[in-house]
Nucleic acid binder design. Structure first.
Length: 203
DNA sequence: GTAGGGATACACT
DNA sequence: GTGTATCCCTACT
């Protein structure tokens, strides 16, 4: 298969454009010569300083400075004392917009992912932002890495057919909840579906 | 339903 | 410098 890494211009557009187009693309990771990869099935767009749910909303800090840099780089952060999450920086440099990768369909290196996750079911390997970073062994060291080559890159899927997707509200945030900036492959069993659904009181 | 875990940002001193 | 609320979540009950 000819999986070319996505060109930088792909990322240099609005996060709302990039996010749905990332669905169906392949996120690849090489570590110690071992490749693990998955098809992106769920993402969320974050719009930087205009978006109250974004880490960049209150300006640049040491933690989020990668988001203010050039597009096409990975923003990796640690949260809840346990998990890493990986974002793709989009838009123009200085704009701090990004797309959070929330779920993958495992494609390559499945045995390795199963060991790292201590799970065997494919649906439990990468169906969540913290799970997929564990499955692909993505950590703080990859923060700021360009996504055009090893050790972490995104390539085109096999074909260029548009992927059928659905649009919903974002998950796990407390501000900007009503904005429909989550995109997921329609009908995929590899998206986050269960437990992350605690309804707000009175909702 | 809820315990767990650690970094981060910000208010204070 | 110290205190504390929050966080783009997961696993287990």
């Amino acid at each position: 298969m000819k999986n070319h890494p996505l060109p930088k211009r792909f990322y240099a557009r609005s996060a709302l454009k990039v996010a749905p187009e990332l669905l169906g693309k392949i996120l690849c990771r090489e570590r110690n010569g071992v490749v693990t990869a998955g098809r992106i099935v769920e993402v969320e767009a974050y719009l930087g300083s205009e978006d109250p749910a974004s880490h960049a909303y209150r300006g640049k800090t040491p933690r989020n400075e990668v988001m203010f840099g050039p597009p096409g780089h990975a923003y990796v952060y640690f949260t809840y004392g346990t998990h890493f999450c990986v974002n793709v920086v989009t838009g123009r440099e200085g704009e701090a917009s990004a797309v959070l990768i929330r779920a993958l369909e495992p494609i390559e290196g499945i045995g390795v992912m199963q060991r790292r996750r201590n799970r065997t079911k494919l649906e439990e390997l990468a169906s969540g932002p913290g799970k997929l970073t564990q499955a692909l062994s993505i950590g703080r060291r990859l923060n700021g890495n360009a996504l055009g080559q090893k050790p972490l890159w995104i390539c085109d899927g096999r074909n260029h057919e548009p992927v059928e997707f659905e649009t919903t509200a974002r998950i796990g945030i407390t501000r900007g909840v009503e904005w429909p900036y989550r995109f997921a492959v329609a009908g995929s069993r590899f998206v986050t579906s269960r437990s992350a659904r605690s309804r707000p009181p009175g909702g």
